[in-house]
Design a protein around this nucleic acid. Sequence first.
DNA 1: CAGTTTTAGTTACTTTATGAAACTAAAGTA
DNA 2: TACTTTAGTTTCATAAAGTAACTAAAACTG
Lengths: 119, 119
Amino acid sequence: MKKFKAHTSTCPIVHTMTYIGGKWKPIILGRLVNGAVRFGKLAVQIPDISRKILAEQLKELEEDGLIIRHSYNEKPPRVEYELSGIGQTVIPVLMAMTELGSEMHEAITKHKRSVTRAH
Amino acid sequence: MKKFKAHTSTCPIVHTMTYIGGKWKPIILGRLVNGAVRFGKLAVQIPDISRKILAEQLKELEEDGLIIRHSYNEKPPRVEYELSGIGQTVIPVLMAMTELGSEMHEAITKHKRSVTRAH
DNA sequence: CAGTTTTAGTTACTTTATGAAACTAAAGTA
DNA sequence: TACTTTAGTTTCATAAAGTAACTAAAACTG
């Protein structure tokens, strides 16, 4: 996703999308709501994300200050990610998305069936 | 954005992202909260979106049943888009994003300045 | 009447993002 | 010695988003 020009915009939703608009970011953040999680565990818990994209998105989230990366100097490596203070301000959005998800998925599935039938 | 495999997922946030995860979709929906808006007005109000992408995203939103397209048979054409019932269920997410936006933008700007100074 | 304006798109082409698969380092274990 | 474990990285392929120019058809302008 090409970066928005957040500084030139006055629309708050554009700002939000600038920071959590990546395809996987809300899903990653959602996994961190209950505490720190290791890289490998995120890769397993999030269906269909590739390790490359996971690593990229985590790096962006860290650079924006939404998450904190804890690297323990061990071999094999152990790295944990957790929400920062800024990251926690996103929780209301994540909750709203969580509440919406199943409900909307059902409604849209039904809608599409009816449209198909009406052909 | 490659489509999620919504049907194979049980994570509600994945479902939400399936339908409103497109880069511009929350921004478009946010413009429709206060009533129907014409295509051209959306193009003007949303900074930096191209007409091609706008048209594409509107078509997807319509196919998913989030918005309704009203085409008046006039020349030059007049087309309005408005939120459907399903689309209105997204409003809480849009509100949360709106509340978060400016606040988070400020916090992240400050965060990035402090990181830069600490080099 | 020829030429301009208006609107909601579309078309062809370029640039970014995202994805899949294989690969790496370094210590612990069999 | 060979195998396992972990957090990535690298290379190459595909999909999404962006740019600019173009279209149709009626109404308006001179």
